[in-house]
């Protein structure tokens, strides 16, 4: 039973991403969307959180939400994070047994 953890809050304002990453188990995935996409940025004060779980938990970020915020260009996102589109979002939901929202 793997879980897709969904995070839509900025990690600089709420600790939802930090908490989701802390509770994600091996094989789980974390999807950053809406203001959650800011958590995928390179070189931030929270970027090290992503590195800590790399290899155990895959982190995804929703491309359209990045583009909307001016962060769609090359090299803005941490290397361990994968960009997905809306279809990829649906795939993530279907390949995990459940989704958990971190509000």
């Amino acid at each position: 039973m793997t879980t897709l953890h969904m995070v839509n809050k900025s990690p600089f304002e709420k600790n939802a991403m930090q908490s989701a990453l802390g509770h994600a188990l091996k094989g789980d995935a974390v999807l950053l969307f809406e203001d959650g996409v800011y958590g995928a940025l390179k070189g931030t004060t929270v970027a090290s959180e992503l590195g800590r779980i790399a290899g155990e938990v895959k982190v995804y970020v929703l491309g359209p939400d990045l583009t909307a915020r001016g962060l769609g260009g090359d090299g803005r996102i941490a290397d361990s994070v994968t960009v997905v589109d809306y279809n990829g979002f649906v795939d993530l939901v279907t390949t995990h047994q459940r989704t958990q929202a971190w509000l």
Binding site: D35, Y38, P64, D65, T67, A68, R69, G70
Partner: peptide, 23 residues
């Protein structure tokens, strides 16, 4: 300040979100 700085990020493009890009 804080996350407010993201309001001024360049290259914002909200077409696929269906919300207005007010930048």
């Amino acid at each position: 300040i804080d996350d407010g700085v993201f309001q001024l990020a360049k290259g914002q493009d909200t077409k696929s979100l269906g919300v207005k890009n007010f930048s």
